[in-house]
Nucleic acid binder design. Structure first.
Lengths: 246, 246
DNA sequence: CGTAGCCTTGACCGACGTCAATGATGGTGG
DNA sequence: CCACCATCATTGACGTCGGTCAAGGCTACG
């Protein structure tokens, strides 16, 4: 099955800039700062004490966990605007690891103040609840559409989910030309080279089979791959294949 | 794959009794009443307007959805103490259907008052957040342990999850002798005859293969089945098989 | 030019789905 | 009490999907 190599290290911080659209917490008087992660840099590991919760500002990260048999299971991708660290509400250590898939920036909130303020300030809780509900619905959707069925269905579903979430994160932070965007102009181009190992470990397929399946999706005209990313050539067909439900 | 027949109808209500342990909402001045569901009775369907949210008081229900290809995907089982209807926070219609697996009782809270009170009363939000976090962790655990890997791993994992949640729900409402309990005295006996179709539709396996796998788990001494339920004969072995993580 | 990551392709095989027939169980009505 | 039927579980035969192993190709980078 997928890959088995862990990763390591941490890096530089700056003071945080508020940005209400992508990170509603940043405009509510909470203290936070901003981290820059390089590609493949580890932010925290399973079991680490939760000292901060995070909001992804840009780039893409993935949350994963190594199973006892050595497989790496990717639990979720984290897009700009996603909140990381819900488990802080009920536990004191992270239940999975997070590393950057691309260079990324994240806002870091010291956890104790964050929780205190959440309970003190109803509007914060409201934001948090909506975030959780959103996370829940993504997980459920993954269970429904992605978990079972053929490899091509599952990969198609994942590609559609990624597009959807990229769209959502763009809606949060409309393209300024200065800022790199995940999706191309017509929303059928994904500016992200997703390693097959990531797809494999997300869906529980072998890398080999992911390769085969992508090849056949390509041959059937569903997608097109380039050095820089991926292009959706037949969205309706893909949705059909994936049993996608809007 | 699994079965494809829907079900129907609704039934009798009574005034609700408060019970803080199993349903923290019932002691906070919210109005609610209590429904009795017969086995296989439908409480609500996907797409129905959310007029109430629910807390299971006794019995077992399952939440499911029919996929476009006719398969039924069971999203979750609902044990006593489980909250149903989180989607009320962000949507106005249910995203899946719920029917009773055994005779069951549920507390029903009119949704508008419920939401209003939640935002007005911080202690309610706190309860809600903890519930959501719990749901999240169950889903995640299912993804991690259950979703991929062999049929025997997945079935073993499901059986362990059911035991765990039964234990939890018993912790909420300690056995009075008057009250039927899911687990037997030594916690290795499950007083519940889980139809194979339920297992199949939960895990995305065929009924036929579930049967084969259960037979082999039985032959290997992991479990034992009776007319009334199931007995765990080798918990450590099961956990090992399922890559279970405590 | 050599090496390290990735991805691709082929050969092979085991796990699981499908189809179909047969049992077991329990409820209903004569 | 028995005959009938519905539901659920079991078992065999067979085909396909996807995992594993192994070899080779393509960039990128020193």
């Amino acid at each position: 099955m997928g890959s088995r190599i862990p990763e390591s290290r941490k890096s530089g911080t700056e003071p945080g800039r508020p940005n209400d659209a992508i990170d509603p917490f940043s405009t509510r008087g909470l203290t936070f700062y901003e981290l820059a992660l390089e590609k493949a840099e580890l932010l925290f590991s399973e079991g680490d004490e939760i000292d901060h919760v995070y909001v992804v500002r840009s780039g893409l990260c993935y949350r994963y966990r190594y199973l006892k048999d050595g497989r790496r299971q990717i639990v979720d991708l984290a897009f700009p605007g996603d909140f990381i660290g819900l488990e802080a509400l009920t536990q004191d250590s992270f239940v999975n690891s997070l590393t950057a898939l691309t260079p990324a920036r994240v806002a870091a909130y010291p956890v104790s103040e964050f929780i205190r303020q959440c309970y003190a300030e109803p509007s914060l809780v409201r934001v948090l609840l909506e975030w959780m509900a959103r996370g829940q619905s993504i997980l459920t959707k993954r269970l429904l559409g992605g978990a079972h069925g053929s490899a091509s269905q599952r990969i198609a579903h994942l590609l559609l989910e990624i597009r959807l979430r990229a769209l959502f994160s763009i809606r949060l932070e409309p393209k300024k030309e200065t800022h790199f965007s995940l999706l191309g102009v017509d929303d059928t181009e994904l500016n992200l080279k997703l390693p097959q190992a990531i797809i494999a470990d997300t869906l529980g397929l072998s890398i080999v089979h992911v390769s085969r399946t992508l090849t056949s999706l390509r041959e059937d005209g569903f997608i097109e791959q380039s050095a820089t990313g991926l292009r959706y050539r037949n969205l309706d067909g893909l949705k059909d294949l994936a049993l996608w439900d809007d």
